[in-house]
Amino acid sequence: MALDEALLLFSPEEGVTLRFYSWPESSATFGRHQSFQFVEREIKQEGKPALSCTRRITGGGLVFHGEDLTFSITFPWKEPITPTEIYQSLHHLIGEELRQEGISLHLKSEPSAIAGLNKICFSVPEKSDITALDGAKILGGALCRKNKRGLYQGSLKTSLISLSLAQIKQAIFRATSIFGKKNPEEKIPFFERSKISLLVDKYRSQDWRLRVP
């Protein structure tokens, strides 16, 4: 999470980055403004009280990680594009790329019936989420904008797609072309240690994790 924020804050204004990462089996992330009490309750209900969880800088809901491929994209957020347009365009393109690999899927066209912040990401697909034909959610994500740059954090259930990890990554890689660059930067740039340390401390701190909005 700290590295995603560093890529958002310290990459060149016009730069596009793509980062893939994975989690230990029992991990969760939750949205920037979600209540920690809600998250704790849901984690208990899931039967994973020892699960480690981190608050994201992006919006959206609680995500249980382990069986997913997570990835982040940072990009120049050109005005006047709305978050809905970015979300829809990116997912549309990823969906098209996966279709070309032979995967049948839907882009959900209706908004979810659940309002408010306290949601579990994969329990109910939102508008423009990618789902399997039976409605199971394949890809969801969340966004954040700081100054003129945006961060997208996505979670893709690899078990619902009969493609290799390399094929899925390639599809996502190609879809990042919507941000105006053919080849996003995949190599993590060099950041000053002090800048990264501050962000790592932030994500490890109780203040950030428990903050009551």
């Binding site: 949205g31 920037r32 403004h33 919006g59 978050p83 979300y87 954040c144 904008r145």
Partner: peptide
């Protein structure tokens, strides 16, 4: 910060 559906803005 303000949050719209899935997106947080400073």
């Amino acid at each position: 910060t303000v949050e719209s559906v899935k997106a947080a803005f400073d």
